[in-house]
């Protein structure tokens, strides 16, 4: 039922490319899917050579030196999952902010403007909620910083481009939350994730119905399987889809494994 978990090759490729462009987007994943171990060593130490700020000298108290102290790791346990969700909510909020500043939105019918206003509101609320919640639970130093995004591949003047991207992001969000549920230890966080994922699913449905109103696409066979089950993604799959938009480097080396192995 579930795709086999595999190491994400994107990581290695990105690491190599980062030699040429140290600011290039790359998400490094480790420990995902391989027997609970953090198997993938951070492979970008060369990056230091290209660090113009030269701020990487910060002393590290850990006995084993952190491969790159400048790069934020999402963390472990529930905090790791919360940061993971926070990263996605940051992306969605950034995307809808850009949508509302773009040509498509400016000329869109009122109904579509209203819809994008709502989606923007919801994602900004989700994002800022996570910031407060994670900071309260784990401290600012363990809260994912504000990420930067590269959305240059999206044509914000084009309805098709905006709707297609919105659909991809919302569907990915649904799959991400569904796949993360079994990695959450605290019931309160699980319920919170549940409160958000159904709203993401409502969004995904609405966007899909906007793209193709007179159809079954709102919950199409492309995403819902023969058992009537929606998407469920592992973090590696999510970063493969969404990572291209994220410019800020961070690692996901310590995210918890699924509780049941399902």
């Amino acid at each position: 039922m579930k795709k086999p978990k595999v190491k994400v090759d994107v990581i290695e490729a990105s690491s190599k490319k980062s030699k040429n462009n140290s600011r290039r987007k790359f998400i490094k994943l480790g420990g995902l899917g391989i027997a609970g171990s953090s198997f993938l060593l951070y492979g970008c130490n060369e990056d230091d050579l290209f660090d113009p700020g030269g701020e990487r000298e910060r002393p590290q108290p850990q006995p084993e030196p952190d491969p790159d102290p400048e790069v934020f790791d999402l963390g472990s346990g529930d905090v790791g999952i919360l940061n993971y969700a926070y990263a996605l909510e940051q992306l969605e909020a950034a995307f809808y902010t850009q949508v509302r500043a773009g040509g498509y939105y400016a000329g869109a019918p009122q109904e579509e403007k209203d819809l994008f206003d709502d989606l923007y509101n919801h994602e900004v609320i989700h994002r800022d909620f996570f910031k407060v919640a994670i900071t309260a639970a784990a401290g600012e130093e363990n809260t994912l910083p504000d990420l930067e995004f590269d959305v240059s591949s999206i044509d914000f003047d084009s309805r098709d481009s905006v709707l297609a991207t919105a659909m991809a992001l919302e569907d990915t969000g649904v799959g991400a939350y569904n796949g993360a549920g079994d990695r959450i230890a605290d019931a309160t966080y699980l319920t919170l994730a549940g409160k958000i994922v159904s709203v993401e699913a409502r969004h995904a449905s609405a966007i899909r119905s906007l793209i193709n109103p007179d159809s079954a696409d709102f919950a199409g066979d492309d995403i819902i399987d023969e058992n009537g089950l929606d998407l469920a993604y592992d973090p590696s799959e999510v970063f493969e889809i969404a990572g291209g938009f994220i410019s800020t480097d961070f690692t996901a080396d310590n995210l918890p494994e699924p509780m049941t192995g399902a």
């Binding site: 569904n178 796949g179 079994d182 549940g194 993401e200 409502r202 449905s205 919950a219 929606d230 469920a232």
Partner: peptide, 14 residues
């Protein structure tokens, strides 16, 4: 849990 969550979001799409 996971399949139930996958049904949950389908209901939300509906």
């Amino acid at each position: 849990l996971e399949p139930a969550l996958q049904i949950h979001s389908v209901e939300a799409r509906h």
